[in-house]
Amino acid sequence: MNWLILALVVWLGGWWANVWLSHSARAGTRGVRLLVPAIFGLSLLVIWQGLVRGLNVPQVILPAPSDIAVKMSESLPILREDFLQTFVKGALSGYVMGCGAAVLTAVAIDRSVFLQRGLLPVGNFVAALPIVGIAPIFVMWFGFDWQSKAAVVVVMVYFPVLVNTVEGLRASEAMQRDLMATWGASYWQSLFKLRLPAAMPFIFNGLKIATTLALIGAIVAEFFGSPIRGMGFRISTEVGRMNLDMVWAEIAVAALAGSAFYGVVAVIEKAVTFWHPSQRV
C-alpha cells in the first residue's frame, strides 16, 4: 500500500513541478529545459517501481527498475561481452562499411545524371522495404558469427545514406559552382572544395538515420541464429527462460548504446558543419 501511495505522490508532485516549471519565468533557460524531461523520466521510473511493488506484479511479467539495476550491476561482464559482439563487431563494422560504400557510390554516379535518375527512386523504394527480412539469408551465407550481422547492417544503412548523399551533392548553388568554374577548378577540386562540404548536412542526416538502423539490424539478425553471445541472442534466450530482468538490462544497454551512437554522430556533425545555419544558434 505504501508503494502505491508513493507512486501517487510522485506522480502528482512531478506533474505539479513540471507545470510550475514550464510556466515559470525561467522556462526558456537551458537548465529548466533539461530539468523538466529529467523530472518526467524519473517520476516515470518511481511510478513504475511503486506500481510493480505495490500491486505485487510477478517478475515474469514486469520486473521493477531496482531489480533491473541490480541485475545490470551483477552481470556487467556478460553485458560487456554482448555489447562487444553486437555493437562493436556487428553494428559498428557494418555501419562503417555500409556508409562508406554508399558515399563512394554516390560520388561514383555523381557524373551520370542517367544513373542518378534511375538509382534515386529505386533507393527511396528500397529504403521503405522491410530489409531486416534478409537476415535469415545472410545468416545462411555468412555464418552465425558477427560477419552475417555486419552484412545485414551494410544493406540496411546503404540506401538511406546513398539517397541523402546524392541529394547533398546537388545542394551547392549554381552561383557557387560558377565561381569554381571561373577559377578554372577541375571536377575533383570542385568536388572536394565545394560540393562535398556543401553536401555534409545531407550526408550527416543519412548517417544519423543509419545509426538506429544499424543497431536494429544487428540485434534482429541475431534472432535468426548467432553464437552464444550478443544482445539479440541474450534477449531471445532470456525471454524464453522468463528472466525478464536480464532482458530489460540488455534493452537498457541497447538504448544507451543507441543514444550514445547517435550523440557521437551528432557531435561530429556539429564539428564538420559548423557553418550551416542550423548549427549557428
Binding site: S22, V36, P37, G41, T211, T212, I216, W248, A254
Partner: peptide, 26 residues
C-alpha cells in the same frame, strides 16, 4: 500543453535513436 511539450517531447525524439524493435520478443 506547455508542460507536456517540455516533458514528453525530448523523450519522443530520444526514443527514435533507440532500437525499440529489441523489445518485440519480450
Amino acid at each position: 500543453n506547455r508542460a507536456m511539450d517540455m516533458s514528453v517531447m525530448p523523450w519522443a525524439i530520444a526514443s527514435q535513436t533507440i532500437p525499440i524493435l529489441a523489445i518485440a520478443p519480450m
